[in-house]
Design a protein around this nucleic acid. Structure first.
Lengths: 113, 113
DNA sequence: CTCTTTCATCGTAAAACTGCGATAATCTCC
DNA sequence: GGAGATTATCGCAGTTTTACGATGAAAGAG
C-alpha cells in the first residue's frame, strides 16, 4: 500500500496560455500572494514533493515533514487557498496535486520582475 | 531636482554565474526567505520601481506608495535583509538599488520548482 | 553653529502566522 | 450499526508582521 497509491490522481494536460498582464497593481498583489504562500520552508518542501510526485496523499506528506499532522494540514490549506495545489478526495484519503497553471503563472510573474 | 537625481548610482555589471544547487534543504530555505520578502504588495511595488529605475531615492519611493515613511523604511529593510536590494548613502539621501545577482537567484529557484 | 531635510529606529497596538494537541468529520471495513 | 484510519478544524500559546507617530542621527544650507 505504499507504491503508486495515488500516483495517477491529478492528471490534467493543461496547456492553456495565461494572457493576464504581468505587471500593474493586480499583478503585484497576485505575485505577493503567491510569494507569501511559498514563503515558508515547509511549504516549499511540500511543493517539491508534489512536483516530484514523491508524495501525494496527505499522510505521506506528513511523514516527510518534521511537523505535526495538524500543522501540515494548515500548510496545505495555505497552498490550496493560494491556488497552487488542489486536493482530490480519494476515499478516506486526500490526494494533493499541483495546479500547474498557477505555478506557471508564478514563474511568469517572477521572471517578469 | 526631480530628473536624474540619482539615476546613476547602482551600476554593477555583475555577470557572475551562481553555481549553488537549486534544490535541497538549503535551497528550500533560501527560496522561502526570498519569497517571504516579496510576499507583500508594497514590497513588490518597490522592487518594480527599482527595476524600472523609476525611483531610487527613499523619499521618491515613499511618494509612490500610500504608506507612511516609517512603514516604507521598514519594507525597504525587509528587502535589504533578504539581499534583494542595497542602499547607498548619497549625502542626506539614500539610493536603493537592486541586487541583480539575488534577483536572478530568485528567478532560478522559482523556475526550478 | 543652527535649522532644515532626509532617513532610520523605537515604541506600540492590532493583526496574522506558526505550532501543537484535542476534537470533529468522513470514509472503509467488519 | 461500531471500530479504525485519515484528514480538517478548533482553540490555544508564542512569535512575527504591519502600520503608525514620535524621536534620533546625519548631512547640507544658511
Amino acid at each position: 500500500m505504499k507504491e503508486g497509491t495515488a500516483a495517477d490522481c491529478c492528471s490534467a494536460p493543461d496547456t492553456a496560455v495565461d494572457l493576464r498582464p504581468i505587471e500593474g497593481r493586480e499583478a503585484d498583489e497576485e505575485l505577493a500572494a503567491l510569494a507569501k504562500a511559498i514563503g515558508h520552508p515547509a511549504r516549499v518542501q511540500i511543493l517539491r514533493l508534489l512536483v516530484r510526485r514523491t508524495a501525494c496523499v496527505c499522510g505521506d506528506i506528513v511523514d516527510e515533514l518534521p511537523l505535526a499532522q495538524s500543522t501540515v494540514s494548515q500548510h496545505l490549506k495555505v497552498l490550496k487557498d493560494a491556488g497552487l495545489i488542489r486536493g482530490e478526495v480519494d476515499g478516506p484519503r486526500v490526494c494533493y496535486c499541483l495546479e500547474p497553471r498557477v505555478l506557471r503563472r508564478l514563474r511568469a510573474l517572477v521572471a517578469g520582475l
